[in-house]
Amino acid sequence: MLTQAVEHLVRNIVDFPDDVSVRSHENARGELLRVRVNPEDIGRIIGRSGRTANALRTVVQALSDHDVRVDIMDVRH
């Protein structure tokens, strides 16, 4: 559910919604959500001074009952 919610939020922010993918990974530190977007949308998803990325992380923590990290990457990685 969390990955679908993040994907929905991100798709509505970016200019290239078809390039958005969100994958969940478990590691020693908890859950990690990897958000991939088109390279042209990196600035839009991070926002001025990281405000959009921080807001996205705040929403994820509010929706989750455990620690979740969010990494934002472009599709080249």
Rank of each mutant, 00 (worst) to 15 (best):
V20P: 08
S21V: 09
S21M: 06
S21H: 09
S21Y: 02
S21R: 13
R23G: 09
R23A: 13
S24A: 15
S24W: 05
S24G: 14
H25I: 13
H25L: 14
H25Q: 14
H25M: 13
H25D: 14
E26S: 13
E26I: 10
E26V: 12
E26T: 12
A28P: 03
A28T: 12
R29L: 15
R29P: 01
R29M: 13
E31P: 05
E31T: 15
L32W: 01
L32C: 06
L32V: 14
L32A: 05
V35A: 01
V35W: 00
V35P: 00
V35G: 01
R36D: 12
R36N: 12
R36T: 11
V37K: 01
V37Q: 04
N38C: 13
N38I: 04
P39A: 09
P39D: 08
P39V: 07
P39M: 10
E40H: 10
E40S: 14
E40Y: 10
E40Q: 14
E40M: 11
D41T: 10
D41Y: 08
I42A: 01
G43E: 08
I46T: 04
I46A: 04
I46F: 01
I46W: 00
G47L: 07
G47A: 06
G47V: 06
G47P: 10
S49I: 00
S49W: 01
S49G: 02
S49P: 00
S49A: 13
G50Y: 02
G50T: 07
G50W: 02
R51P: 02
R51K: 13
R51S: 12
R51V: 03
T52Y: 01
T52V: 15
T52K: 05
A53Y: 02
A53S: 10
A53M: 03
N54R: 12
N54T: 04
N54F: 00
N54C: 00
N54Q: 14
A55T: 11
A55I: 02
A55P: 03
L56R: 03
L56N: 04
L56M: 07
R57P: 05
R57Q: 06
R57K: 14
T58V: 06
V59I: 15
V60N: 03
V60W: 02
Q61M: 09
Q61E: 14
Q61N: 10
Q61L: 05
Q61G: 08
A62E: 09
L63A: 11
L63Q: 09
L63P: 07
L63I: 11
D65Y: 07
D65P: 06
D65R: 12
D65V: 04
H66D: 11
D67A: 11
R69V: 08
R69T: 10
R69I: 03
R69P: 05
R69Y: 05
V70K: 04
V70L: 15
V70Y: 01
V70G: 05
D71A: 10
D71F: 06
I72G: 00
I72N: 00
